[in-house]
Amino acid sequence: MTAETLIEVNDLNFSYGARAILKGIQMSMPRGQVVAIMGGSGSGKTTLLKLIGGTIQPTSGYVKFAGEVVHELNRDALFKLRRKMGMLFQFGALFTDLSVFDNVAFQMREHTNLPESMIRDLVLMKLHAVGLRGAHHLMPNELSGGMARRVALARSIALDPMLIMYDEPFTGLDPISLSVIGNLIRRLTDALGMTSIVVTHDVQESLKIVDYVYFIADGVIAAEGTPKEVRESIAPFVHQFVHGEEDGPVPFHYPAQTYKKDLNLEDNFA
């Protein structure tokens, strides 16, 4: 494994108005690895992906992708940079008015001048890699959730990017589709020499396939490590998250005044 860094996140802060979403994030992702970013709902994981993709600007700090600071690029340079990135959205985000074939061919037609016959071969190759070559003529609304995500995966590797970001790739899938997607992420990363960032809260599935894990809670990195370290970790937050315990550092109860006070049990005797 080479130690060459593809993505470097340095002291990254982001806030919506006065609400801080990310506070001083520090990350480093080497080429060729599958990195998972885990955390509860609303912990700022998706925001981090958007910052890497350059769709939003950080409040301070920076994200460096292949040596370039993402938020300092102008529009054209950013678009050029994004051709080296792929992103798999939560529910695939396939273009509903295009067939599976045209969805996968979309970027090739937009960004290259390849002849139609070559596009056809390439599309079928990409679809074959996700096992859906036979479904190239279907429309997105004829696909199941797992198939749609596989097509979206084929679409995001269409131009052989250096990086693929997966936004909650395991949400709402049955166990079979789930492990199919998980294995595809691992296999494609290794076969194409890409780097993958998987944003998820599915602990068990992702620990099987990733090389390194970051835990984000309340906008800061709460813990990090290899899957082995994470499983054996005794840090309370990691332990709660990995084993799915109800109460712990992340409390079951939303912060409130005391139960007794809410039910007016104390005031009556005051």
Binding site: K80, R82, G86, F89, A93, F95
Partner: peptide, 20 residues
């Protein structure tokens, strides 16, 4: 149509594919 494309992140996906 455009609103639905936005709601299902198709527009965002297009932006990430470097297509305006």
């Amino acid at each position: 149509e455009i609103g639905l494309m936005k709601a299902t992140e198709q527009l965002a996906a297009m932006g990430m594919m470097a297509v305006d």
